[in-house]
Computed example of a mutant assay.
Amino acid sequence: MSDPHEIQNRENTVQETLIIPLYARKVCSELYPNLYRDETAVRLINEIDYDFSEAEKKSHSLMQRFGSLEVAMRQNDLAFEVRDYLKSHPNAAVVNLGCGLDSTGRSCDNGSCKIYNLDLPDVIAVRNELLPAGEREENIPCNLNDAEWFSQIDASGGAVFFASGVFYYFLTEQVKALVQRMADAFPGGVLVFDAANRTAVKMIAKTWLKSAKIKDVGAYFAVSDAPKEISAWDSRLQVTSRGYMLGYNDLRDPSVSGFFRFLARVGDNGMRMQIVKIRF
């Protein structure tokens, strides 16, 4: 591994897209150990020389703790779908779209699948330092909207693609075009990702609208009724969705308060926070 201080000298955008989600997964592991455990995040946070004092302060607030629960449930749900696909396609490609420093692919490794981690070149450069590719694993620098990366995926045994917190920052037309190209290239494959309705996406956008100088947030991907709305894109798509807070887990755990379960219902039902699964 290179000098850990190097992570401090990266651009702020890389720090935000890599360090903050990584720290959230570490907090999830501490707050909800019965529901979620990311040993890789815990290890990397201890190894990286980075000032986490601000993140530490925020992590104790009520909404930040609920946000950590959201992260935990989202990662668990996506991992469930990956493992479910591997049951019938043990030699499949497991493809993490917009991977950052996430290790979900490794946590789902069945000993015979192929793992691919895709992200922008500067992100993959950091990942190669901190999480070098292991056996049957590749870290691929690319732009997800450029289909050139398709040729690097060995989908001969099937393919399951997943994206965590990625498509909120894509235009709807970009998501539609990517899904249609993937349907062409990977018949029999599955794509799973988290999504939410327009109200939720507007709330998410508040954190990046000003810096990106974006005015038309309505152009960004949001969905309320995924089976109806996304199926209309292409007749080949078989689309299902489940709430991502309570659709896979009822959260009846001592670490989760009744108030948080209430907020989870609001998220799933009011904000339409969901895991979308598309079969090609």
Score class of each variant (00 low, 15 high):
residue 58 K to F: 10
residue 135 E to K: 13
residue 10 R to E: 00
residue 28 C to M: 14
residue 149 W to H: 13
residue 26 K to N: 12
residue 130 L to P: 04
residue 78 L to I: 11
residue 134 G to M: 06
residue 74 R to Q: 07
residue 93 A to T: 06
residue 108 C to T: 10
residue 81 E to I: 08
residue 50 Y to F: 15
residue 72 A to N: 12
residue 127 R to C: 02
residue 13 T to F: 01
residue 15 Q to M: 00
residue 68 S to G: 14
residue 13 T to M: 03
residue 121 P to L: 00
residue 23 Y to N: 03
residue 106 R to D: 13
residue 92 A to I: 07
residue 26 K to R: 11
residue 41 A to W: 04
residue 109 D to I: 08
residue 70 E to N: 13
residue 82 V to A: 04
residue 134 G to A: 06
residue 83 R to I: 06
residue 140 I to S: 10
residue 13 T to N: 09
residue 153 I to L: 06
residue 47 E to W: 03
residue 81 E to N: 11
residue 47 E to P: 05
residue 126 V to D: 00
residue 103 S to C: 15
residue 90 P to N: 05
residue 141 P to I: 11
residue 55 A to T: 00
residue 112 S to H: 13
residue 104 T to F: 05
residue 151 S to T: 09
residue 125 A to N: 01
residue 86 L to F: 04
residue 39 E to Y: 10
residue 64 Q to M: 05
residue 34 N to W: 10
residue 134 G to K: 12
residue 37 R to H: 15
residue 19 I to P: 00
residue 119 D to T: 00
residue 69 L to A: 09
residue 24 A to R: 12
residue 56 E to Q: 15
residue 128 N to G: 04
residue 29 S to Y: 01
residue 53 S to F: 09
residue 24 A to D: 04
residue 45 I to A: 11
residue 72 A to G: 14
residue 61 S to Q: 05
residue 129 E to T: 02
residue 32 Y to Q: 11
residue 134 G to E: 11
residue 107 S to L: 11
residue 31 L to G: 10
residue 151 S to W: 00
residue 65 R to L: 04
residue 24 A to Y: 04
residue 28 C to W: 09
residue 70 E to T: 14
residue 144 L to Y: 10
residue 109 D to C: 06
residue 49 D to P: 07
residue 114 K to N: 14
